[in-house]
Simulated scan of single mutants.
Amino acid sequence: MNFALVMLGAACLDGVIGWPSRLYARIGHPVTWIGALIAGLERRWNHGSRRARLIGGAATTLVVLATALLPLWAIQSVLPSTWTGHVLAIILAWPLIAVRAMHDHVAAVAKPLMAGDLPAARHAVSMIVGRDPARLDDAGVARAAIESLAENTSDGIIAPLFWGVVAGLPGLAGYKAINTLDSMIGHRSDRYEAFGKAAARLDDLANWLPARLTGLLFALASGRRMRHAVTVMRRDAPRHRSPNAGWPEGAMAAGLGIRLSGPRLYGDTIANEPWLHGEAPDPKPRDIDRALALYRRTMAICALALAALALF
Rank of each mutant, 00 (worst) to 15 (best):
A110E: 09
L96T: 03
D132M: 08
R100Y: 12
K111C: 02
R100H: 14
L118F: 06
A93I: 14
D117N: 06
P95G: 14
V109T: 03
I97N: 12
R122S: 01
A115T: 05
L92R: 15
K111L: 06
R122H: 07
L96S: 10
A115Y: 00
M102T: 13
V99W: 10
A124I: 05
K111N: 12
A120T: 03
G130R: 02
D117R: 00
G130S: 05
S126E: 02
H105N: 13
D104E: 15
V129I: 12
I91H: 13
A93L: 08
A134V: 08
A108V: 12
L96Q: 12
K111Q: 08
H103E: 15
A121M: 03
A134P: 05
V99T: 13
S126T: 03
M114R: 08
P112G: 02
A93N: 07
H103Q: 15
V129G: 01
L96G: 11
V109G: 04
V125E: 00
A108Y: 14
P95I: 04
A120C: 03
V109R: 06
L118V: 12
H103G: 15
L118I: 05
G116K: 04
G116S: 03
V106H: 06
A115M: 09
P119H: 02
M127V: 00
L113M: 03
A134Q: 11
P119C: 06
L96Y: 05
A98E: 04
A120Y: 00
P119G: 02
A101T: 14
D117M: 00
M114P: 00
A134N: 11
G130L: 01
V129A: 02
M102Q: 09
L92P: 11
R100C: 14
A124Q: 04
M127C: 09
V106G: 04
A110C: 13
A107S: 13
R122G: 04
P112V: 00
A134D: 12
I128M: 09
M114T: 09
P112Q: 04
H123D: 00
D132T: 12
H105K: 14
P95E: 13
I97V: 15
H105T: 09
A93G: 09
W94V: 03
R100Q: 14
A124P: 02
K111W: 04
D117I: 01
S126W: 01
I128Y: 06
V109F: 07
R131T: 01
K111V: 10
A115E: 10
